[in-house]
Design a protein around this nucleic acid. Sequence first.
RNA 1: AGUCCCGUAGCUCAGUUGGUUAGAGCACUACACUGAUAAUGUAGGGGUCGGCAGUUCAACUCUGCCCGGGACUACCA
Length: 1104
Amino acid sequence: MTHLPEYDSLNLPAIGNEILKKWQDENTFEKSVKIRKGSKPFTFYEGPPSANGMPGIHHVMARSIKDIFCRYKTMKGYQVKRKGGWDTHGLPIELGVEKMLGITKDDIGKKISIEDYNAACRREVMKYKDKWEDLTRKMGYWVDMEHPYVTFDNNYIESVWHLLKELYKKGLLYKGYTIQPYSWAAGTGLSSHELNQPGCYKNIKDNTVTVQFKVVQDKKTEKMFPKGDIFFLAWTTTPWTLPSNCALAVGKNIEYALVKTLNRYSGKPVRVILARELLPKYFDEYFDEYDDEKLNSDTAIIEKNFKGSEFEGIRYEQLMPYAKPEGGDAFRVLLGDFVTTEDGTGIVHIAPSFGADDFRVAKQNGIGSLTLVDRNGKFTAAVTDFAGRQVKTKEDQAKQDNSTDLAIILKLKKEEKAFKIEKYEHNYPHCWRTDEPVIYYPLDSWFVKTTAVKERMIELNKTINWKPEATGTGRFGNWLENLVDWNLSRSRFWGIPLPVWRTEDSSEEICIGSVAELEKEISKSAAAGFMKQVKVTDLHRPYMDEIVLVSTKGKKMFREPDLIDVWFDSGAMPYAQWHYPFENKEAFGNSFPADFIAEGVDQTRGWFFTLHAIACMLFDSVAYKNVLSNGLVLDKHGNKMSKRLGNAVDPFEVIEKYGPDAVRWYLISNAQPWDNLKFDREGIAEVQRKFFRALYNTYSFFALYANIDRIDFDEKQIPLAERTELDRWILSALNSLMMKVEGYYNDYEPMRAAREIENFVVAQLSNWYVRLSRRRFWRGGNSSDKIAAYQTLFACLDAMARMIAPIAPFYADRLYCDLQNTRKGGAKVESVHLSRFPSATEENINPDLEELMATAQKICSLTLGLRKKYNLPVRQPLKRILMPVSSTPEINSKAIAGLEKIKKLVLAEVNVKELEIITDTSGVLIKKIKPNFKELGKKLGSLMKEASGMIQGFNQQQIREMEQNLEYKVNLAGKEIVLTINDVEIVSEDIPGWHIATEGSTMVALDVTVTKELKDEGIARELVSRIQNMRKERNFEVTDKIVLKIVKNSGVESAIVNNFQYICAETLAESLELVESIDEISAESVEVDDNIHTSIIINKLNLT
RNA sequence: AGUCCCGUAGCUCAGUUGGUUAGAGCACUACACUGAUAAUGUAGGGGUCGGCAGUUCAACUCUGCCCGGGACUACCA
């Protein structure tokens, strides 16, 4: 006979540690994968974290989600391999190293060699690897940390190169340029990450100017405008870009006005065009009627109105004719969707070389471009009078009187092209290294032509199951709709080098797709004498930079100096983690695309996108079929967690304190994974207290009595039909639960699964089934009813262990093994994670029974409510409950039959002797009628209000008629309308002269008469309660027999005599003696109620 | 600035295709129950469902605008 283990208390952290050790000793994770060999694979991709930062509580969240579904699918019979990974490249690592070494990017190659710098990055990136591995282990996240993929590995990089070459071959990799934030002082482009560093955006005052662009007179403009010079007005905060102006943009639907006014500097009359809405910004007054008297620089006379679209294609004269734009037809008015009337004139000056919007709109319209500023931020020689002048510096801003901007403005003023000159304060980005203002500048970049497969990406995205759906259609979908080519280039040091070599004149280039190919090219180059024959050992900089290849025409080819965007690294993981296609072709084939991935919602345009893009471009496939994007973990006040605010939660500490299961359960059950979670440790304590303790208590109760009764669980299963109503009910509820929970896990709805389980354990299993079954367990002997109770409870606990296993893997394992390993003959089980997820047996589900039990619970709660209301303690037995049931015959018989079944349970629970069902309620019940808005609303529409009033005014007689005839004719707004019984809801409201309570359609009346007999029984119960408490206080075992002595008096005597057997049985008293007095010290005086007192002595019966 | 998510009781969250007294848990108060129970039951207080407008017989629910929190992307005359 094996014993079920019993515990003093529930210690979740200790269970965590013990199970962890067990998993380690027994290689449980490996086994869980191994035993599914040959089964259908369920593919999961691990999004690689970067180990150069400490893991936080949000990582526990994200990884719990990943872990849950992998464990679940394993238990469903799939083989779920989980290869870990490390993201190792990127700017944050470079910044960390620079901080550590106390250097800046300028020092690289000077104070420190690229070689040493990259070596430092390689070390730095794994700084917290130990911590990550420790957390992974402690939180119970099963992922293969022994054989992770690492993005800086040569093999990994080689796979990435292969992918790049494939893109190259398809013509999807090209060199172009975009307008990017550029630090002329540092000579480098800046990433948005760099621009978002604190302090980069500063409020500065700039000299701005509204300038006049003169319309060219041609056939079109002659028709549109009055004779004479007409000017478009455009405002700029960067006058230095005006020499490079190539176009003007207007808003298609914006209203513009042609006005006559005086130029405030020349004093001459002038006709200008600007957005009508913005007239007040430029003029104090404006008129529709011409009046010469009123003409001055602060007033405008509106001569004509236009819509922006009418201006499209109008030509204007170049403002500052230093040089002609190349590559297009410039100096035209374009339509731009970005044009607003928030400030300026509603007409935007376009310099395609110095603005991203400008570039885009110019390209779309074939405008060409003009770049009159060099890479040092100085005007080129073409700008004769300003040549060599720095266009935007912090000095300029300091002494505004002498800035280049102002010089340009003054020149324009002199030429009578300036309309208004103002100072303007705004936020402007600065270089975080040099502190100089950033300019936007065209820079060479390598691009992936994602726009070429845009439609296909959108199409494939529609086949992906997004959780939540809105992320897939909204954030991700919109992103795809507005896709631009993917800028791969990064001017950095620590990353995957772009494997493209070019001749200096760019006439020839080669994209390398493997190490072998590179070595072959090196041999050729060595043969040509361009470099020594070398073996390739590291695919990073600076080694790759040192390689010079030879072109087919015999020219030297140098590597394009850029690194690639680290997002490409991680997006390439489905292939590169296997070193595909150089190795593991089969492994790759079996694991693509992924069935499931999960990461933070911040990865939408990051990892989710890059996975999707690469898979779509190269494999015409999705990269993942299901994706769950989880929200943030905020502090309990809803603030973002940060080290700076000191509100970051240490995941190690929390896991140690509450145990990994409680933390995981809390994170999962508290909010939908995609909603932000306000993390509050009180919540974890509550999960511990309520859910885990209820489950543990249920197990403890089970173990306590099963051990007493020496149940060994080898008994034959008692057929369901022979079990009690209560057993059949909880098994039905259990099977329903299985169906729901399985559905939720399948739908990637872990919160709903957790809550459903929680409700079952706390409300149904612990608080109803066990509570009402207690007596069955402590009754002597091993009757078949008792065996049935054990079997039922065992089934519930066993299923619970397996159902919670994905979320609470530690306690689940303990519970499962404790339960299973008591079976006498059975083989020892090792772990719940090697078992199968329980599936429902549909025959066991009985919805009627579940509904019936819900009614029983309702009746109990109503009765207890009444007891409370009339101050009738539950220990006082009462005579009867009356229950009116519907007068519809067919509902009636079913309801009555049902109530008969649960009668006993209810009566025992609320301590009442009888339940009487009243079917003939006429004359007894007072009923209330109200319209069924949903039904009737459809039928009546706007007559609802009137109908509602009328129906609620029905008297008892009318209600009765309605019930009997099942319909009722009324007059509404002159029309006769037949109300059917379904159009209304009739509920019982009151029974005059009774104590009643109702909830919904359930009504309970309580007979509160207390007879002498009932009173005695109540007293007996009180005594039992006191005696039980005394047993407990004295730490008697549940099975200890006792001898009882009670001091007799008129208050208790008849109660004891009349309930002698009952008292003895309940308290396990072998003898009960009524005595005149007790003088022993151990006697306890008790108060039964206000007027009745006595003394009791209990002693353990000495078994000899 | 754009896109997306969130806003319901002091706190954490439910709330079906729109249907009339908006729910649960925690916390608080009182009472009750308890030989599995740091549990549970009953009752109570606590809400202009972020705001305004619209659609509708009917809006927490649908639409628009606005406010607040957050994320991502971008940074513009």
